[in-house]
Write a protein that binds this DNA or RNA. Structure first.
Length: 664
RNA sequence: GCCGCUUUAGCUCAGUCGGUAGAGCACAUCAUUCGUAAUGAUGGGGUCACAGGUUCGAAUCCUGUAAGCGGCACCA
């Protein structure tokens, strides 16, 4: 008797199939169209190869290109394999290592034989990949033992693969995938049935870069090739177009076009804020100051430079010195030859963070448990000598100003304080137009200060607080990141996304018991004894530099009126309207609007174009008609048509829009 | 810091085989007074990132340095 398997399909129907049959057989049984379109299968929810025999009765859903998420994942994974195969065909002796799919494509890391790859190599590799796709090579799964794998990789001189295989579990089925009969990679799968299922016009190799083997700086530098991969040519074109559009929002480009700031090599990693850029900063800072005042913070200002001895005591000199700018505490020599500074000068350092200084303020006088929580805020300018390759526009710089604060709390106040911080951050992010942000909890790293009990407690407090605010959810991308915490404390991280999808940490909150201990901060408890406060390091914007950079990209330069450096331009059509225009400007200025006049002898088309490119939110266009009527033609960014209205009405409208959100 | 690439006028970029630089925009002057995304003419403007080297001769070839860009690692 031949046993039959019961295979149930998504439409509720059931098919009996002989033992040993595969999802591909089911597809063929249903119809030739489906057999051709099927890419893979979900069997009892698990994504598997079409050719993988059923192991028992099962629920089957065939995956076609209409199941876009699964299909893209499969395609990108296959593109990565084909990339590896192509590179080995063109550059014999290149070792393969690892190549996953990414959000928009794939990459593969290679150990090149004699030189790193460059972008000039990409066209030839792409062509070779297309050959492999055109050959429609079947992708066949085989189960191997670990020993088989290791010996195969060793034989082929694939030392990275061999190292990796040696660490795979010995008691599980390990799989390899053959591409045709001549190339294989070890891989968990699943894969498409054959390379010909890929659209040769749906991928593009985009760039090369270095990447460390296993992500560790101590390891070999591999050569990584990135590609973007899709299901068809149209999707690829749309993606490339999105990238092009996103590049137009780049804060570095808009910063120059809108005359907000510049960077130059003599002060690399430090921003030259121009008047218009600094207006955004001032408006943002004023807003933050009002919010913090209302939330019970006390603002302070602390020294930019402190003696190295102080940094030794805080632990930064030992743990953080490579990122610090040090300054000799000496009068430089004015002689032309010889050392500028004598070698026995004492050292001082620019502050890389504000926390020690805030503890020093806390320690002045005696603090009672009644004084806590104490929220000490500072818009603190810090310097960190970052790795040069890390610098990025104004998002990652060497001089930056944090909206920093340290909250000294009793242990019993911790969770409540973290909750109010999360609420304050949420309020501020929404005011600034960021309803979407993600929250991560970075847990204890391997190298750390403090006891396990302390870490258990701090991590649980942060987790509990976020859970209590209802934000430990998928909507907020809630995720715990093992090993990512600071050496002294676990961290809540609040991330925002830039124009091309890169994530940036902005807000942060860390619970620190180490620094109060090292710098001997204490308060007198109800019991009359000294106790250690817990210190919360926290920032909402993170830094003004990064946050303004993110805002520029988020709004594509079209900032909300209250933040726009120039809120309105008064532009004349004919010089006969000049006097009226000057009067309009005066009245707008009196109403507190940041306004500029454009009385140049230029056509109105020219003026409209220029101010539109500068992202000025409102233009008040004045010709003879308006001058006679005392009206204005208001042309607003994003609106299709101008609106003619009495001047008083326009002023009221602009005034309302120019009001910061906390004053509405 | 590591891998790859780039650096020419204020900006965006051309510049072939090595023979001492060119466009558009911007700027200045003049004309034009015009109704919602570029009016026309004329003119000024460059140690070709920096330092060496090869060569009769270097923007161009070679070496080094710096900064920038894309990643990696690190991080707000």
């Amino acid at each position: 008797m031949s046993a039959q398997l019961k295979i149930s399909l998504p439409d509720g129907s059931m098919r009996e199939m002989p033992v040993g049959s595969t999802p591909a057989d089911v597809a063929a049984a249903i119809g030739p169209g489906l057999a051709k379109a099927a890419l893979a299968a979900r069997v009892d929810g698990e994504l598997v190869d079409l050719s993988r025999p059923f192991t028992g009765d099962a629920k089957l859903a065939l995956v076609t290109s209409r199941d876009e998420a699964d299909a893209l994942e499969l395609a990108r994974h296959d593109f990565a394999h084909i990339l590896a195969e192509a590179v080995q065909a063109l550059f014999p002796g290149t070792q393969i290592t690892f190549g996953p799919s990414t959000d928009d494509g794939f990459y593969y890391d290679f150990a090149p034989k004699d030189r790193q790859f460059t972008e000039d190599d990409l066209p030839a590799i792409e062509a070779e990949m297309r050959k492999i796709i055109a050959a429609d090579k079947p992708l066949r799964r085989e189960v191997w033992s670990r020993e088989q794998l290791i010996s195969r990789w060793q034989q082929q001189g694939e030392s990275f693969k061999a190292e990796w295989a040696a660490e795979l579990p010995g008691d599980e089925d390990l799989t390899v995938y053959w591409s045709g009969e001549d190339w294989l990679d070890m891989c968990r799968g699943p894969h498409l049935p054959s390379t010909g299922k890929l659209d040769p016009a749906a991928f593009k190799l985009t760039r090369v870069s270095g990447a460390y083997w296993r992500g560790d700086q101590a390891n070999a530098m591999l050569s990584r090739i990135y590609g973007t991969g899709w299901l068809n040519k149209k999707q690829l074109a749309e993606h490339l177009n999105r990238l092009e559009e996103a590049a137009k929002r780049d804060h570095r480009k808009l910063g120059a076009e809108m005359d907000l700031f510049h960077l130059q090599s003599e002060a690399h990693g430090s921003v030259f804020w121009h008047p218009k850029g600094y207006l955004i900063w001032r408006e943002l800072e004023a807003y933050m100051r009002r919010r913090l005042d209302r939330a019970g913070y006390d603002e302070v200002k602390t020294p930019q430079v402190m003696d190295a001895k102080q940094w030794e005591q805080s632990g930064h000199w030992g743990k953080y010195r490579e990122n610090m700018f040090v300054i000799p505490d000496a009068v430089p020599s004015t002689e032309d030859d010889g050392a500028l500074v004598s070698s026995d000068a004492d050292w001082m350092a620019l502050k890389p963070m504000n926390c020690p200084a805030h503890i020093l303020i806390f320690k002045q006088g005696i603090k009672s448990y009644r004084d806590l929580p104490m929220r000490m805020a500072e818009f603190g300018c810090c310097h960190r000598n970052e790795a040069h390759g890390a610098l990025h526009g104004i998002m990652r710089v060497r001089q930056f100003t944090q909206d920093d604060a340290h909250i000294f709390v009793r242990p019993d106040q911790l969770v409540e304080e973290v909750k109010s911080f999360c609420d304050l951050l949420d309020l501020i992010y929404k005011d600034l137009g960021f309803a979407d942000y993600t929250i991560k909890l970075a847990l204890r790293p391997d190298q750390r200060f403090g006891s396990d009990e302390m870490w258990d407690w701090s991590e649980a407090s942060l987790r509990d607080a976020v859970v209590a605010t209802g934000r430990a959810t998928a909507q907020f991308g809630w995720e715990e990141l093992p090993g990512e915490g600071a050496f002294y404390a676990p961290k809540l991280e609040f991330h925002l996304t830039d124009a091309i999808g890169r994530k940036w940490q902005c807000g942060t909150l860390q619970t620190d018991t180490v620094l109060p201990e090292r710098l001997d901060a204490s308060y007198i408890g109800e019991d009359g004894e000294k106790h250690r406060p817990v210190m919360l390091h926290r920032a909402i914007l993170g830094t003004f530099e990064r946050f303004i950079g993110i805002m520029i990209e988020h709004y594509a330069g079209k900032l909300p009126v209250w933040l726009a450096p120039v809120q309105a331009v008064v532009a004349t059509i004919v010089s006969d309207a000049d006097d009226y225009a000057r009067d309009v400007v005066r009245q707008l200025e009196a109403a507190g609007i940041r306004v500029e006049a454009d009385l140049r002898n230029e056509k109105i088309n020219y003026k409209v174009r220029e101010h539109s490119l500068k992202k000025v939110p409102h233009m008040l266009v004045l010709g003879k008609r308006e001058a006679e009527e005392g009206s204005v033609a208001l042309r607003s960014m994003g609106a299709e048509h101008q609106k003619v209205m009495p001047l008083a009405e326009a002023i009221a409208l602009l005034k309302a829009e120019a009001t910061p959100p906390d004053r509405r």
